[in-house]
């Protein structure tokens, strides 16, 4: 028995960790390719980040510092519970500060602060298959990937342009990794897509329910799917100022004030927002 109660270090047994690491190594070797793995039953429900959690647990060591983000915030229920589970089975320190963390598990966001080569970003993925909405059969989508037929992904974009005049994918905008595999980047906003291109940090993506692991190694070319006459565009964040820290040009949450009416904006990346507020308080 370890000092972490009845559980092995980092909850998973060593055999499971090794199996997940083997899948991870394969994923890194074939950027953007979805590697199947034996997703375990976890003490949180499938669809709540079990893919990301298993990646984190297979990689974490006693000297790591962990940060967990849920839709930009460190303090939402899911992020807090995942942190509590990992802390109680490993004893590692956790941090809200992006710069302090060595492992960052995230749902639906890539942190605003650029990542360093010594950091690993782990993204939770609900639907790893970018072609799933055009082709429900896994048997067929695997063949489409093998033969590099991504017609369906482009037809989806074309249909959006026909119906709405522009691409309307709000989150999970498909990307092509290193001119080969088309990949679902997990439901990040479009503003996060360029952060994947030639980044300094390793990005791992885990889908627990769908039992897939895939990766974007550092310094890998990642391009968002687009048409020649409809180039990829991020969300328009111009003219929005964070009501708390005054930041501009970052991804924001829109907050409706039910009592007084009106709309305000706040930084979606709460730890960056807090850092800016602290810096401002120190300066004054």
């Amino acid at each position: 028995m370890s000092r972490h109660g009845t559980y092995n270090f980092a909850f998973l047994d060593e055999g499971s960790k090794r199996e997940i690491r083997r899948a991870t190594l394969k994923a890194i070797a074939i950027p953007g390719y979805q590697v199947p793995f034996a997703s375990r039953e976890m003490p949180i429900a499938r669809g709540w980040g079990t893919g990301g959690l298993q990646l984190t647990l297979s990689l974490i060591g006693p000297d790591d510092t962990l940060k967990v983000i849920d839709q930009g915030t460190d303090e939402s229920v899911n992020a807090v519970n995942i942190k509590a589970l990992i802390r109680s089975t490993t004893g590692v320190t956790t941090s809200d500060d992006t710069a302090e963390a060595t492992l960052i598990q995230s749902r639906h966001r890539i942190p605003d602060k650029p990542l360093r080569p010594d950091q690993i970003l782990i993204l939770q993925v609900p639907i790893p298959e970018p072609l799933r909405f055009v082709e429900p059969r896994e048997e067929v989508t695997r063949r489409l990937h093998a033969e590099r037929d991504y017609t369906g992904a482009y037809v989806l974009l074309f249909e959006q342009i026909m119906r709405h005049g522009d691409v309307t994918t709000g989150a999970d905008p498909p990307v092509e990794v290193h001119d080969r595999y088309v990949m679902a980047p997990s439901p990040i906003p479009r503003i996060d897509n360029p952060k994947m291109d030639h980044g300094d940090a390793l990005i791992l993506l885990g889908a627990g329910r769908e039992k897939k692991i895939y990766a974007v190694p550092p310094h890998t070319r990642v391009t968002s799917l687009a048409f020649d006459d409809h180039p990829f565009r991020s969300e328009d964040v111009d003219g929005r100022t964070c009501a708390l820290c005054g930041a501009e040009g970052v991804f924001m949450d829109e907050i409706q004030d039910a009592q007084h009416g009106g709309t305000t904006f706040r930084c979606n990346d709460t730890s960056e927002c807090l850092a800016r507020m602290n810096a401002r308080a120190r300066a004054s």
């Binding site: 017609t151 037809v155 074309f158 048409f227 006459d229």
Partner: peptide, 10 residues
């Protein structure tokens, strides 16, 4: 698109 056209207008 399958034949590699990537121009919506055309």
């Amino acid at each position: 698109i399958a034949a590699n056209d990537r121009h919506v207008g055309r």
